[in-house]
Computed example of a mutant assay.
Amino acid sequence: MSTLRPGTAERAGLSRSALYRAAREGRLERIARGIYLPADAPAADWDWIEAATRRPDATICLASALAYHELTDTIPAALDVAIPRGSRAPASTGAIAWHQFDRTTFDIGREEIPIPGTDQSIGIYSPERSIADTFRLRSEVGYELSREALKEWLRRGGKPAQLMEIASRLPRAKSPVLQALEVLA
Rank of each mutant, 00 (worst) to 15 (best):
R11M: 07
A41Q: 06
G117A: 12
E128D: 14
A82Q: 06
R33M: 02
R30K: 15
A22M: 04
R27E: 13
L4N: 04
A12W: 01
I60Q: 01
R129P: 05
A65W: 11
I115G: 09
S92N: 08
P6F: 03
A41C: 07
R30N: 08
I131F: 13
I75M: 09
A77H: 10
I75G: 01
W46P: 01
Y36F: 14
A9S: 15
D45K: 08
Q120D: 12
P116K: 02
W48N: 05
W46A: 01
I35R: 01
I31V: 15
P38Y: 05
A9Q: 05
S130Y: 12
T104A: 15
E128Y: 02
Q120N: 02
P84K: 14
H69N: 05
R24C: 04
I124A: 12
I83E: 10
Y36L: 03
S17W: 12
G109V: 11
A18S: 14
R110I: 10
Y20C: 04
I35A: 01
P114S: 07
D47E: 14
L4A: 06
R110K: 14
S92G: 03
Y125L: 14
E128M: 07
D107A: 14
H69K: 08
I35M: 03
A67L: 07
R16Q: 13
A44I: 01
L37G: 02
A12H: 13
S126L: 11
G13N: 12
L66R: 08
S15V: 10
R85P: 00
S64A: 12
Q100P: 00
I60V: 14
A18N: 11
A43K: 05
P42M: 05
L71R: 09
A22L: 07
I108K: 11
I96M: 05
S121P: 04
L62T: 03
A132S: 13
A51N: 06
I75A: 07
I115F: 07
A97G: 00
G109M: 10
D57P: 00
D119Y: 02
I131W: 13
R55F: 00
Y20H: 08
A22V: 00
R85G: 10
Y68H: 15
D133P: 10
R30W: 01
T72I: 05
A78Q: 13
A9V: 04
A77K: 03
G94M: 00
S87Y: 08
W48S: 03
A65I: 09
T8E: 14
E29F: 01
I131E: 07
A58C: 00
A9F: 03
I122Y: 08
H69A: 14
S130F: 10
A9T: 07
G34R: 09
A51L: 08
